[in-house]
Simulated assay, not measured.
Amino acid sequence: MKRRTLLKTLSVPALAATGVLGWMSAARATNRYYQGPATDHFDGVRFFSPNQPQDKGFMELLRWQLGGGRKEWPESFPSPFRDKPPADVQGLRTVLIGHASFLIQVAGLNILIDPVFSERASPVSFSGPKRVNPPGIAFEDLPPIHGVLITHNHYDHLDIDALGRLWQRHRPRFVAPLGNDAIIQAEHPEIGVETRDWGGSVELGNGVIAHLEPAYHWSARGINDRRMALWCAFVLTTPQGTIYHIGDTGFGDGRIFHAARERFGKIHLAHLPIGAYEPRWFMEPQHMNPEDAVKVFQIVAPNQALGHHWGTFRLTNEGIEEPPHELAVAVRAAEIPPDRFRPLRPGEAWTPSG
């Protein structure tokens, strides 16, 4: 079967939502986003996670997409929550907007992580993974935004249109891993983006510092830019405690989680992804399942963990309510009090008091 015909069969926008189209990249290429010296996770053209599996091949992609086992999702899965956040929070408040998009309000700052407000997580507006619930905070109800943090460039995490709207309305600071500035500025050259490598940090003000930390993932926006922009997790050190936010990651050998605990000490709050994990043989290197997320919880030992990356966009094979059900099983097996690690729904807020 020719590749062009196969792409129509495999639903290009759905694959592009998580960057799966990157398998078409040439073995060697010129990096269009970033030029810099080789490091232990950059070979001069592409970024990689040291000692971790990297790219799936075309035949593996074909096996997944044509192998069946994809469970149906409802057309609508409304959340019982809808949030209108206050303009200013001196303590700590975090809200899931949907999927992996969060509003963190801490020490008087309002910080968005991976804000996606579009109807589809896709490079096109007419096809691809479509929301089954609206954003838990309406764009018009956002408080003044001081900072926007981007973990990586997959379409379910980097919404170019939303970033442009945020710039026009709020003029926030933008922070992202290496190479993502070129992607954003190709559409919005007026936006300044502060980029850092793993281990770098940006002071956001009021005692809040955003640290870019490793994740076991990858990146792509299209058919020939696989791993040309870096990906990351964020650790926010704040006057209200340390917040560990992971956008996407596999568990891998677990080293990065031990390293985060060693570097930052006690974690107050962890945002841990729990969805988009089936079939396991394909997704394990890049997406944790609930059992993996519980292992991360046991390593970093946060006071509170909140599960995200489920229930808004159908990206993989599992059913829409499987992630919270499987999380409950894993939490119970690990003898963790259920309230210490619970999944959030869009619009659901958490504060240290409850």
Rank of each mutant, 00 (worst) to 15 (best):
K2F: 02
R3D: 08
R4L: 09
T5S: 12
L10F: 15
V12F: 10
L15W: 07
A16E: 12
A17F: 06
L21R: 02
S25R: 15
T30S: 15
N31H: 14
Q35P: 00
Q35R: 15
A38Q: 14
T39E: 07
H41P: 05
H41C: 08
F42Q: 10
D43I: 11
D43Q: 12
D43Y: 13
G44M: 11
V45H: 10
R46T: 11
F47T: 06
F48E: 09
Q54E: 14
G57N: 14
G57P: 03
F58P: 12
E60P: 03
L61G: 11
L61W: 15
R63W: 11
Q65S: 06
G69E: 04
E72S: 14
E72Q: 14
S76R: 14
F77T: 02
S79F: 09
R82D: 04
P86I: 04
A87L: 08
L92F: 15
H99Y: 15
A100P: 01
S101V: 03
L103F: 10
L103Q: 13
I104Y: 14
Q105I: 08
Q105L: 09
N110D: 03
I113F: 15
I113Y: 14
E119K: 14
A121W: 00
P123Y: 05
N133P: 00
N133V: 03
P135C: 04
P135K: 08
F139L: 04
G147D: 13
V148E: 02
H154P: 03
Y155Q: 10
D156K: 01
A162D: 02
L163P: 00
R169Y: 03
R171G: 04
P177V: 01
L178S: 12
G179K: 10
G179E: 03
N180T: 07
D181I: 05
I184W: 02
Q185G: 06
I191C: 01
V193K: 02
D197H: 15
W198C: 07
V202M: 05
V202T: 06
G207E: 10
V208S: 10
I209E: 13
A210Q: 10
A210R: 08
L212E: 09
L212K: 09
E213P: 08
Y216W: 04
S219E: 04
A220Q: 06
A220P: 01
A220C: 10
I223N: 11
R226A: 06
A229W: 00
F234M: 06
F234A: 08
T242H: 12
Y244G: 02
F251W: 01
G252N: 02
D253R: 06
G254H: 02
F257H: 15
R261C: 00
F264T: 07
K266L: 12
I267A: 10
L269M: 12
A270Q: 08
L272Y: 11
Y277P: 00
Q286L: 00
Q286N: 04
H287M: 01
N289A: 01
N289W: 01
A293Q: 07
K295D: 06
V296E: 08
I299Q: 11
A301I: 03
A301N: 11
N303P: 03
Q304E: 14
A305F: 10
A305P: 08
L306S: 09
G307Y: 09
R314V: 00
T316N: 04
E322V: 00
E322Y: 07
L327T: 06
V329Y: 12
R332K: 15
R332H: 13
A334T: 10
I336V: 12
P338I: 04
R345F: 13
R345W: 14
R345T: 03
W350R: 12
T351S: 15
S353Y: 13
G354V: 13
